[in-house]
């Protein structure tokens, strides 16, 4: 029980963010038309690449070669998620945009 209390106390600010972000997320997404479901999912997917920041910090303070290696692979993967995700979303949305100007 102490561990639970300790956890809640130590992370109370983070938990605050989690709860509010959940509401914010639901509010932001709830009204998206189904036309945009795929790009939204893909764009959100790219945002889940924020772990890139954690990976940079990890590699940035790693000292032995194993940590650097594993961290670099993680950083590589996270960047792939970010770059690929944003570029592919842009490519999808570009197709939606094109029609707009044509008509």
């Amino acid at each position: 029980m102490d561990a639970v209390i300790q956890f809640l106390y130590a992370y109370h600010q983070e938990i605050f963010i989690v709860v509010l972000a959940t509401f914010l997320g639901f509010e932001l997404i709830a009204s998206v038309p189904s036309v945009l479901h795929t790009p939204l999912m893909s764009g959100a997917n790219a945002i889940s690449g924020v772990v890139i920041v954690g990976a940079i910090i990890y590699v940035g303070h790693a000292t032995d070669w194993l940590n650097i290696l594993v961290g670099s692979i993680a950083l590589f993967m996270a960047t792939l998620n970010v770059t690929g995700g944003f570029v592919v979303t842009d490519r999808m949305l570009e197709m939606f945009k094109k029609k707009k100007t044509k008509e």
Binding site: Q13, E14, I17, V18, A21, T22, L24, G25, F26, L28, I29, L40, M41, A44, N45, I47, S48, V50, V51, V53, G54
Partner: peptide, 13 residues
């Protein structure tokens, strides 16, 4: 906090 917010937004979406 930014990583938490980004992750949770995606989780909610």
């Amino acid at each position: 906090y930014m990583m938490i917010l980004g992750g949770i937004l995606v989780g909610a979406a």
